[in-house]
Design a protein around this nucleic acid. Sequence first.
RNA 1: GGUGGCAUAGCCAAGUUGGUAAGGCAGAGGACUGCAAAUCCUUUAUCCCCCGGUUCGAGUCCGGGUGCCACCUCCA
Length: 481
Amino acid sequence: MALQIYNTLTKQKEEFKPVDPEKVKIYSCGPTVYDYFHIGNARAFVVPDILKRYLEYKGYNVFHVMNFTDIDDKMIKRANKEGVSIKELADRFIDAYFEDTKKLNIKEADVYPRATDYIEDIIKLLKRLEEEGYAYEVDGDIFFEVKKFADYGKLSNQNLEELASGARIEVNEQKKDPLDFVLWKRSKEGEPAWDSPWGPGRPGWHTECSVMSRHYLGDKFDFHTGGIDLAFPHHENEIAQSEAVNGEQVINYWVHNGYVNVDGEKMSKSLGNFFTTRDILKDYSPDVVRFFLISNHYRSPINFSDVELNDAKKSLRRLRNTVARIHKLIPDNKVEIDAGNQKEVEAIERAIDDKRVKFEEAMDDDLNTALAIASLHELAKKINIFVNDSEFEINKATVMVLEKAYNTFEELGSILGIELRPELKEEGNKLIPPLIELLLEIREEAREEQNWDLADKIRDELKELGITIKDRPQGTEWEIE
RNA sequence: GGUGGCAUAGCCAAGUUGGUAAGGCAGAGGACUGCAAAUCCUUUAUCCCCCGGUUCGAGUCCGGGUGCCACCUCCA
C-alpha cells in the first residue's frame, strides 16, 4: 500500500509519489526563536517527525530541512527588552529548542538553516522578483505585487476580491494594493540591518522559506509542513515568491496540522492561553506529552487539558504493561520444552500479523495515528488473554510468539516515536534498591505474623515517598513513581 | 462578507470506495489480595446535531437548517 496524504493545495487525499524515489524531501516551518515553544508548536514538530519516521519505515531515505526564523519583529522586541543581541537571543532559544525536542523524541532534521545566514540569497531572490516585475520598491521597502501572480490564493482557496473585502490588514499608503506583502523592510532607528541595493533593511517573513528550501531541496520537492494557521498568508506568499521565479509548482504536498486548543479555543501567545512545552514537561513525562499529541488525527484540533493528558498517560501505560509482561515472560536462557497447544500459538501469530497490517493501513491513510494506536491496544488485549489462560506455559512455540509480539510492539512503537519496552532503569542512588528490599523483607515478616498495622504502615509510607508496592502471587514488586 | 473544518456513548475519539458503530478514559461486574493498590478479563451507543431526499441498505452520498471552531493581522 502506498501512503495517502491530505494535500492542502488540492483539498484531498492523494497518493504519495516522490519526486526522487531515492530521497524524499521535506521542508518544515520551524520556530521563531524568541521564546520557548508552546505545546501547539510542539505539535507542528511532532507531525513531520511522524511523517518522516513512517516514510523511513517504508524504506525511503528522507532529507529533512527545518528553518529557524531568527530575525523579525518579535525577535527585535524581545532582544531589546532583555538587553541582549538578536544573535544571543536566537542562540539561547535554539539551544532550548533542541533540549525540549530531544525529550519529545523528535528526530533531528538534516539541516537547520537560519534566516540570517541567507540574507544574500534573499536579496538575490528579491532582485529577480523586481527584474521580472513582481516586486516594486517604495522608499526602501520592497513589496510583492500580488496581482501580478495569477495563481495567488490557490493554497488557501481565496480570490483577490474576497480577500480584499474581508481584509483586516492595516492600509499602508505605500502599497499599490492592500494585499501586497512586504519582501524587504527598510530599517528603522536601532534595528538590525543588512545592506541591500535598496539601502539598509531586513527581509520580510516569507522570503526565507522560499530561499532556504530552494537552497537545500531544489526547484521541486515533496513535502512542506506547518501549522494550518501558516497556510495563509505565509505559505500562500511563499508559493507566490517561489513560483514567480521558478515558473512552475515547487512543492507537491502541503501538509498542515490542526491546532492545540485550550477550552475549545486556539492556543496562542496573543490570547495568553498558552503553555510552554517546557512547563508541561515538569508535570508530565515527555512520552506522555508525545502520546497525547499523536492520539488524535493530526489535522483535527486537540484540546489541551489535564484530563486528556491523564487519559493519554493511562492509555500509554496500558500498552507498556503488556509489553513489560511479555518481557518478563521471555526467559533469558533458551527454552528446550517442546510446544504444547500449537493452535493457540498460531492464532496469536496471526493476530500479530493482522494488527501490523491494520497499523500500516491506518498510517497509510493520511497518518491516522489514532487508529494505529488502537491496533496496538487490540494486540495488547489478545496477548493478555493469551498469557492469562491457565493452559499457558513457557515452551519453544510460546516463547517464539512472545518474542515476535515484543519485537512488533517495539518496531511499531518506534514509528510513533514511543518507546514501549520497559526501561532499563538506572537508579540514581545504588543504595535505594537494597534499602527498599530490606523494608519489604521486614514487611513480609510482619505479614507472616499477621501484623497488618506494621505491614500497611510500610506500604503507606513508601507510597508517600513515591514507591508503589504490588503484592503479586509470585511475590512483592515495587516501583518508583 | 469570503474560505476551510467540525458536530459519533458520561469524557476523549476512529470510522477508508454507502453494508449495519474501532480504541482509550471513567463507570459497573469478575479474577487476584489479609485488606488494599496495581494489574488483567467482561461489560457500556437500536444509534451517529435536526429535517427532507437518493438507495435493497447511509454516521458515510445529495439538498436545506442549527450550533461550534479557525483563517482572511503576528501566530504551529
